[in-house]
Nucleic acid binder design. Sequence first.
DNA 1: TTGAAATTGATAAGCCCTCTCAAAATTCTA
DNA 2: TAGAATTTTGAGAGGGCTTATCAATTTCAA
Lengths: 145, 145
Amino acid sequence: MASGKYAKEMDALKEHLAKHHLKFTRQRELILNAFLRQEHITAEAMYHQLAKTDPHLGLATIYRTLNLFCDAGIAQARHFGSQTQYDNVSHKGHHDHLICTGCGKIVEFENCEIEKLQEEVAARNGFSIQTHRLELYGLCTRCRN
Amino acid sequence: MASGKYAKEMDALKEHLAKHHLKFTRQRELILNAFLRQEHITAEAMYHQLAKTDPHLGLATIYRTLNLFCDAGIAQARHFGSQTQYDNVSHKGHHDHLICTGCGKIVEFENCEIEKLQEEVAARNGFSIQTHRLELYGLCTRCRN
DNA sequence: TTGAAATTGATAAGCCCTCTCAAAATTCTA
DNA sequence: TAGAATTTTGAGAGGGCTTATCAATTTCAA
């Protein structure tokens, strides 16, 4: 049992590592702690952020580790524009996105009723939801003219 | 007024072209007709599909044209994996997905209540929805053991 | 402690998409 | 309708983001 601020996710990671014969490294711990402070981040952004304290951390390692987090259910990759955003699944207030197809504007929102209906749909099909992704595409007020 | 199976979209395209001082070309007509037969397609897939009958149609032209369709409101780009999917906006019968993170099983579903709530959220934020994407990730019955 | 196996960092390579530019096609003008 | 002006096309070069490669290092189980 790990202790500390992010004990739950640390345990989830360790369990995933053990199950797949992977190893717990300084870099993985480092990147996990940095990642969990964010709601969502790109590999590039994390690279620059960590470079301040760990200048020798490679970009490839960041990518590999964030993808590992996705496998472990801690992160979720989302393609946004030309880059990949890694979302923090455990972040409270999971939010969804309204995306304007005209100007690219993004509005975040949260809706409990929708989430409840999602649970119902999942239950009807024998699924237990771990996470979800909802993106609404349309035109914002300004672009509708 | 265009005639034929896809008259409505053809008119929409011509109107957009006229408004922006662009030209109506053989390639644009060709690609539009091929595109409207699909629910969604990638530029690469369309390139190979059209190569059978028009081997000299360039990939860059496909990309340019599909992006033009997006500007004209006929198509909509969506990043999926490493590629861009161009969705046929006029296509009805949108469905969502339940995805098992254990075995990869995918179940399609449709839920009017969720769609209604989506409309409400969008309206509250001044958006008019063109399309959406909803994916629920979790474990199916079998994988939960 | 020791050896097998996994990971790392640097960079090359790959993929997807856009840019460039001369030749061709379309549209406008008279 | 002929010619001029403008846009588009096709082919390949270029660019951004991500993954593959590989020798050196680190982890972990026995």
